[in-house]
């Protein structure tokens, strides 16, 4: 009950400090067996106007990505089993549905933070997960 109250109060008394600063930005990357690290859900090259209009009504894929980005940020500040599990399970589910997995394999994910250092952009790996097993569906 106390835990739910803790989650509810920030919604009843919100801070509304949207984008008050542009903090280091997380990227979630994963690697399968002996492959290369790749970005989880890389954004598309461009989005057409029709697609953008459709997205106003239904943008499930993107909203899930934003949720995982939020989990990555929270995990670096305060590591919690919940954030770890959410990132791991959602990557696992996507891999199971992809053609990338043909047999039982191992995967790992890492949290990379991009930030500006004076004029240059730097990438820093702040967390690498342990190995997990993924089976094809």
């Amino acid at each position: 009950m106390l835990q739910i109250l803790k989650l509810l109060i920030p919604a009843l008394i919100p801070s509304w400090r949207f984008f008050y600063e542009i903090a280091p930005s997380p990227r979630i990357e994963y690697i399968v067996s002996n492959g290369n690290w790749q970005e989880f859900r890389p954004r598309s090259q461009s989005v057409s106007v029709i697609e953008s209009i459709k997205n106003i009504f239904y943008n499930a894929y993107w909203n899930e990505y934003l949720y995982l980005i939020n989990c990555a940020e929270k995990y670096i500040i305060t590591p919690s089993p919940h954030c770890y599990r959410e990132i791991k399970e959602r990557i696992e589910r996507e891999l199971q549905n992809s053609a990338e997995i043909k047999e039982t394999s191992k995967f790992q994910f890492r949290l990379v933070f991009v930030h500006r250092d004076k004029t240059e952009l730097n990438r820093e790996v702040l967390f690498t997960s342990e190995l997990h097993e993924v089976k094809p569906k």
Partner: peptide
């Protein structure tokens, strides 16, 4: 100050996770 000189928005587009496409 980064918002007042446009740098924050520049960073938001350049490296934040939010822009919905690379373009």
């Amino acid at each position: 100050p980064d918002w007042r000189n446009g740098k924050a928005l520049q960073d938001l587009f350049e490296f934040s996770a939010y822009p919905s496409s690379e373009s």
